[in-house]
Amino acid sequence: FDIYVVTADYLPLGAEQDAITLREGQYVEVLDAAHPLRWLVRTKPTKSSPSRQGWVSPAYLDRRL
């Protein structure tokens, strides 16, 4: 999967189903980028939180090589 970094805090609107909150600087794996406005991502697990999966706007993501 492609690795992206979150460029700004992402707080989903209440109406968005299956969306997750992301923090600036967080790394995520993009699982599904087929839709231009919503990408399915999975967060990297940390010592304090397990990995999470949900939909985010790709405008908040920047690809890492």
Rank of each mutant, 00 (worst) to 15 (best):
F1R: 09
F1C: 15
F1M: 09
F1G: 10
F1Y: 14
F1P: 10
D2S: 09
D2W: 13
D2Q: 11
D2G: 11
D2A: 13
D2P: 15
I3T: 08
I3L: 11
I3R: 04
I3V: 12
Y4F: 09
Y4L: 03
Y4R: 03
Y4I: 02
V5E: 05
V5A: 04
V6F: 01
V6Q: 00
T7K: 10
T7F: 04
T7N: 11
T7R: 10
T7E: 02
T7S: 07
A8P: 02
A8D: 05
A8V: 09
A8R: 14
A8C: 11
A8M: 13
D9L: 04
D9P: 05
D9N: 09
D9H: 07
D9W: 03
Y10L: 05
Y10Q: 03
Y10N: 04
Y10E: 03
L11Q: 11
L11K: 11
L11N: 14
P12R: 06
L13W: 09
L13P: 12
L13I: 11
L13S: 15
G14E: 15
G14H: 12
G14Q: 13
G14M: 11
G14C: 14
A15V: 12
A15H: 15
A15E: 14
A15N: 15
E16V: 08
E16G: 11
E16C: 10
E16T: 08
E16I: 08
Q17H: 13
Q17F: 12
Q17E: 14
Q17A: 13
Q17R: 11
D18A: 06
D18H: 08
D18E: 09
D18T: 06
A19C: 09
A19R: 08
A19S: 12
A19W: 13
A19K: 07
A19F: 12
A19E: 11
I20R: 02
I20V: 06
I20D: 03
I20A: 03
T21M: 13
T21C: 14
T21Q: 12
T21E: 14
L22P: 00
R23N: 08
R23I: 10
R23L: 13
R23D: 06
R23C: 13
R23V: 11
E24T: 12
E24Q: 15
E24D: 04
E24S: 11
E24W: 08
G25T: 02
G25Y: 02
G25P: 00
G25W: 02
Q26I: 05
Q26G: 03
Q26M: 12
Q26N: 04
Y27W: 12
Y27D: 04
V28F: 02
V28H: 01
V28I: 05
E29D: 06
E29N: 04
E29I: 13
E29T: 08
E29C: 12
V30C: 03
V30H: 00
V30A: 02
V30M: 02
L31A: 01
L31M: 07
L31F: 02
D32T: 04
D32N: 11
D32P: 00
D32K: 04
A33D: 12
A33G: 09
A34T: 15
A34R: 15
A34W: 07
A34V: 09
A34E: 10
A34P: 04
A34N: 13
H35R: 05
H35G: 11
H35V: 03
P36R: 06
P36K: 08
P36D: 09
P36N: 07
P36G: 06
L37I: 06
L37Y: 10
L37S: 11
L37P: 05
R38D: 02
R38M: 09
R38V: 05
R38T: 05
L40C: 05
V41R: 00
V41L: 01
V41F: 01
V41A: 01
R42G: 02
T43R: 01
T43H: 03
T43M: 04
T43C: 06
K44D: 05
K44A: 13
K44M: 15
P45A: 14
T46N: 08
T46Q: 07
T46V: 05
T46P: 03
T46A: 06
T46G: 07
T46Y: 07
K47P: 14
K47I: 11
K47W: 10
K47H: 12
K47M: 12
S48H: 14
S48P: 04
S48W: 11
S48C: 14
S49L: 12
S49F: 10
S49H: 12
P50V: 08
P50D: 08
S51A: 12
R52F: 10
R52Q: 14
Q53M: 13
Q53G: 03
Q53N: 05
G54Y: 09
G54M: 08
G54H: 05
W55E: 02
W55R: 03
W55Q: 02
W55L: 04
V56I: 10
V56Y: 01
V56Q: 01
S57I: 05
S57H: 10
S57T: 04
S57A: 06
P58C: 06
P58A: 06
P58Y: 02
A59D: 13
A59M: 12
A59Y: 07
Y60Q: 03
Y60H: 08
Y60R: 02
Y60S: 04
L61K: 00
L61N: 01
L61G: 00
L61P: 01
L61Q: 00
L61A: 00
D62Q: 14
D62S: 15
D62R: 14
D62Y: 08
D62G: 13
D62A: 15
D62T: 15
R63N: 10
R63P: 11
R63A: 10
R64Y: 15
R64D: 13
R64E: 13
L65H: 13
L65M: 13
L65P: 14
L65F: 13
L65C: 14
L65R: 11
